[in-house]
Design a protein around this nucleic acid. Structure first.
Lengths: 227, 227
DNA sequence: TTTAAATAAATTGTTTACAATCATTGTTAA
DNA sequence: TTAACAATGATTGTAAACAATTTATTTAAA
């Protein structure tokens, strides 16, 4: 077994990206370059490059001489994140239905994700659900086969997760699995109108499930970086 | 007059961004960190940070140990760039018409751009037209008042310019000013259907005006960085 | 006790130096 | 002449050192 030197900034990006998706990195938490270096073994310059990318995508917030912290979306930002998602994902549906009409779509990834969602839903493992739900939306974009569309959507998904962490209402369910199923069903039956409506209603429901009067979490203390 | 030390990576980004928009930086040209440092006075680390951002946005292509060069879109990529633009800008039109119906839109920026376009068009200054045309599309996105939408579209516009440089057909006109006017007219008259159609046809025309059998330019030699 | 100032510590910003890699040129042999 | 190889030069990759700034702690005065 060879010792691999970690020096790829993209790994830092993925580490933070996935940590946010899995809700292990909370909004507002400060990330210091040195702790990251010590925790994961990347050199500071590599950590910095990764952080820079994450700042560009909006997942981390940068303040001069104060480093970076995980984004903490405001109510207004949250609504605009979803407006942007609607803009992009609405078009994604258009493309998918058109592609499906020409039998160019392979649903295997999507189907297995829905199955996974169903499993976690029935087992009431709601924490797992968030991450998979995000992957579902990303997979839809990837099905378009257009990297530019994927790149456009990419930062918006974890931002939604952050918003959900801040404004989640324990009483209502966020990004429901049933709606995902309904959406895919409409695509599969070549029903553009129904699929479009399904997507817009789904995203609307996601926002409606949030409670903006109830800000949760502002935990800046941390012995280890991810909890 | 104080001497200002240049150390903002964002300035490097803007420099390259505008150079591409104004067609002064040609597709495929290699950019070396050192020449950039010597030409513009930024330190290498600052140049590097700027380049990194441009690579992330897709404007520059990065190869390990070989640095960066200006993107050179293939035919397939070009079509996907426009598919992605259609996805985003189609939704932009939806948002704008809805906003206009509630009198929330200030057309002053757009109107002055169209006037500028008209001037250059009549004066047959076609080189100037490209840059302004790009600003027109960006301004439309900015009118939405949603930075996430703007960020999504941002890299696609200069990529379109690069594609136009590679595949431009001298016989047909690219991104015509008349269609811009028609588009805005439809928005102003609250005609969603017409505005949507106008945008999709406009983008289609942009692609149709390209001649993919005729690759132009592959000029890697350069004494100075921008020509 | 509280507040303010001064000092110390920790973190970020930037440059510089060195290592690693690639591209080019020059040499030699078929 | 051409192809393969070796040596050189230039460029990029990385890390470490130093400077600047912010944050935390201590000290002193009100």
């Amino acid at each position: 077994m060879s010792i691999r030197i970690k020096q790829n900034p993209e790994e830092v990006v993925d580490l933070v990206f996935e940590a946010i998706l899995k809700n292990r990195l909370k909004p507002g938490v400060k990330l210091s370059e040195i702790s990251f270096q010590e925790e994961f073994g990347y050199s500071r310059s590599v950590v910095r490059q990764g952080f820079d990318k994450l700042v560009d995508s909006g997942l981390l917030i940068y303040k001069k001489n104060q480093g970076v912290s995980v984004a903490y979306p405001t109510e207004d930002e949250t609504k605009k994140i979803y407006e942007a998602r609607m803009a992009i994902e609405g078009s994604v549906i258009n493309i998918l239905v058109e592609k499906h009409q020409q039998n160019e779509l392979d649903f295997s990834v999507i189907d297995s994700l829905i199955l996974k969602e169903k499993g976690h839903h029935e087992a009431k493992e709601f924490d797992e659900l968030i991450g998979i739900s995000c992957h579902f939306h990303m997979s839809l974009a990837e099905l378009c086969g257009n990297k530019f569309i994927v790149n456009s959507l990419k930062p918006l998904i974890p931002l939604s997760t952050l918003a959900a962490t801040v404004y989640s209402d324990p009483n209502s369910s966020f990004c429901s699995f049933a709606e995902h199923y309904e959406l895919i069903d409409a695509v599969k039956s070549n029903d553009l109108k129904k699929a479009s409506k399904s997507m817009s209603r789904h995203l609307e429901h996601c926002v409606e499930s949030l409670d903006f009067s109830n800000k949760v979490i502002k935990n800046n203390s941390h012995s280890h970086i991810f909890n």
